[in-house]
Design a binder for these strands. Structure first.
Length: 639
DNA sequence: CCCTTTAAGCTTTTT
DNA sequence: GCTTAAAGGG
């Protein structure tokens, strides 16, 4: 067996470094520090393949993979499918922490005591601000100690109280927050009048934690279901999530694999544990290992990342650039400007030249800012437009482009102009069969009539689009999308993806999509969809949104005190953020600094460099690694 | 009405 | 840490 295990190699001809192979085969709890570009998704996908193919995760046991973002969860699921196929992926559950706990709550709702049992059709509260109105609108009791309590509590403090609630509920009349909190929980769990039973995701975690503590049999069932658990982006685990993890798996035979990078811990302000890996290693007696390859960045950039990572509060290892590179490949420079106007025009000029000389497309670039995309990238968007280069703030599209219904609609629209793509055709047919005829036996399906219906739909889409009333685009396009929704059947969409049953959510997403389409007279369906998917635009985003992504060229605008305002209080977090931005680039990264910038949102041009937080420490580290600072002030521009 | 104090926004995910 | 609007006091 041991011998056999040593001979195992990853599928698909993928080459993994030794440390990764060891981590895949290690039979106990392990934590893996995987820096930028280390191939963490690939590692987990192959570990899943190894465990299932080798029967180390024996049938009918499963592997559970928990991520924080739905994109990451989906990505991992798809990678396992791609590398190891249906048999492996059918026993691999990749979901987000919230999806996992929501699933548990719904599956075991009956086991909760009546007073903590939400209604079956409870609503999810995403926007916590609405809780303020609920408290003021629905809690009518009076408190002897706080006659005017509605105006005496601090909203953020109340949010913290909710998230640190221990069940069963206790409340003291003379403790304002516990008093409100108890009433709020009861109110939200059961609803009142026209207020439906409603929960936030942190509340779901707390309820599930309580449920499991009260019902050891459910815990045992979970332990028996999952022989292995993968934890992705582990540095971002919150207190609630970690507790739930401990409640379920601590002391069990289930083997845990935690992957992540302390150096990319940028969610601390949102409640991530300060030392998740440390705590995990101790609690679960886990072995620690570190991956040493970077498959993303050119050698010079990896060198700079190594130097920078030594200034971070984490064990520092020298990572090796891996791939088809020459020793001197990679460009990193700091560009200094007098003001944001010259900065924008010089950058746009350079981007245009790079596109022409190196045959790059907009998607090879990314403009990253610390925060407030429209303020920091506003000027460059205008300048790029003068070169006929499109750019867009990706935030407005990212959420929409990860909505299941939007992805479905896009697929149908794509098929209406890509008639000769058998891959897309089969993919859609598969999906339609699963959604509409999932419970019908394989042999009894009438493929011919299913295909015929689809052909009819595509024909209708084409006819409708070619007869489009150009002055009334939104209405006409909506009718096209509604044809697809009708074809799939709204009720079936809602039962396949329950989130669309909530309120008007489905329609809202469709309306958002229509409002973001860039139609001018004569735009073809293909151009419309490709544009919507971002094929023609340079993406503009914050560091947080860029995490996990990579680009040939990265432009970081505004390495200035005014942008890194939290640097004096959140030094580590901001340094980590800077490291995340630095490590997005495959071949070239330019950092810009401007003496003046329009950052006030009220049209006041301000000095952005000299305040008290003094971010220049970061630039100094780069200069020490040999990064040149280039003064771009001499160039004359029309201001 | 003017002055001081206080709070919120700034970076965000999740069915 | 900095900016701005809202709220409270005299």
């Amino acid at each position: 067996m041991n011998n056999e295990a040593n001979e195992w190699i990853p599928s698909y001809g993928v080459v993994l470094e030794d440390a990764a192979l060891q981590a895949i085969k290690y039979p106990k709890n392990i934590s893996i520090a995987a820096g930028p570009g280390a191939g963490k998704t690939e590692l987990l996908a192959h570990k899943a393949g190894y465990l299932i193919e080798r029967n180390i995760c024996p049938y009918p046991k499963k592997i559970l993979a928990i991520s924080f973002k739905s994109d990451a969860a989906k990505n991992l699921q798809e990678r396992v499918q791609k590398r190891y196929g249906k048999d492996v992926v059918s026993r691999f559950e990749s979901k987000t922490f919230d999806a996992f706990s929501k699933g548990l709550l719904e599956q075991f709702l009956h086991a909760l005591p009546e007073k903590y049992k939400p209604k079956k059709d409870y609503k999810i509260i995403l926007n916590e601000r609405t809780i303020d109105d609920i408290v003021k609108g629905y809690i009518t009791e009076t408190n002897l100690h706080y006659h005017n309590w509605q105006n005496e509590y601090n909203f953020n403090q109340l949010m913290r109280t909710i998230k640190s609630t221990n069940l069963p509920l206790v409340s003291f009349e003379n403790d304002l927050y516990s008093w409100i909190n108890e009433r709020l929980w009861r109110l939200l769990i059961k609803g009142k009048g026209d207020l439906k039973s409603s929960l936030t995701f942190p509340m779901i975690s707390i309820l599930v934690e309580y449920l499991l503590n009260q019902n050891p049999l459910i815990v045992n069932a979970l332990r028996a279901t999952y022989s292995h658990v993968f934890l992705d982006e582990f540095q971002d685990t919150t207190y609630l999530q970690y507790n739930l993890l401990k409640t379920i798996f601590l002391g069990s035979d289930t083997i845990l694999t935690a992957v992540g990078d302390n150096k990319q811990r940028i969610m601390g302000w949102a409640g991530a544990l300060p030392n998740a890996f440390e705590v995990f290693t101790i609690d679960f007696n886990a072995k620690q290992t570190t991956l040493l390859c970077n498959f993303r960045s050119a050698p010079k950039l990896v060198y700079i990342q190594n130097v920078f990572s030594q200034t971070l509060n984490d064990i520092s290892v020298n990572v090796q650039a891996t791939g088809n590179w020459n020793e001197h490949d990679g460009t990193c420079e700091i560009w200094n400007f007098e003001n944001h106007i010259s900065e924008a025009s010089i950058l746009a000029q350079n981007i245009s030249e790079w596109m022409n000389e190196e045959n790059l497309t907009p998607k090879d670039f990314c403009i990253i800012v610390k925060q407030q995309e429209k303020i920091y990238a506003g000027a460059i968007m205008t300048e790029l437009a003068k070169f006929n280069i499109r750019s867009r703030v990706e935030k407005d599209f990212q959420d929409l482009l990860s909505e299941e219904i939007i992805l479905l609609l896009i697929k149908f629209l794509e098929l209406s102009y890509k008639e000769k793509s058998p891959e897309l055709w089969l993919n859609i047919i598969d999906e339609v069969i699963e959604m509409k005829y999932g419970d019908i036996e394989f042999q009894r399906l009438n493929y011919i009539s299913i295909e015929k219906e689809l052909v009819n739909l595509l024909q209708e889409i084409k006819t409708c689009f070619s007869n489009l009333d150009e002055s009334n685009f939104n209405v006409c396009f909506e009718s096209i999308l509604m044809k697809i929704v009708d074809y799939l059947d709204e009720d079936i969409i809602k039962s396949t993806y329950p989130k669309y049953s909530q309120g008007n959510y489905l329609n809202e997403q469709i309306q958002k999509m229509i409002s973001r389409l860039n139609y001018e007279n004569g735009t073809s369906m293909e151009e419309l969809i490709c544009d919507f998917c971002g094929d023609y635009s340079i993406p503009i985003m914050t560091i947080h949104k860029s995490k996990g992504l990579e680009y040939q060229t990265v432009i970081f605008i505004g390495v200035e005190d005014a942008a890194f305002w939290s640097f004096s209080t959140q030094r580590e977090a901001d340094k980590n953020a800077f490291f995340v931005a630095l490590s997005r680039a495959k071949e070239r990264i330019i950092f810009t600094v401007s003496n003046q910038r329009d950052v006030s949102r009220f049209g006041k041009i301000e000095n952005t460099r000299q305040t008290t937080c003094n971010i220049s420490e970061l630039l100094q580290t780069l200069e020490n690694a040999g990064v040149p600072t280039i003064n771009k002030n001499k160039v004359t521009t029309n201001v």
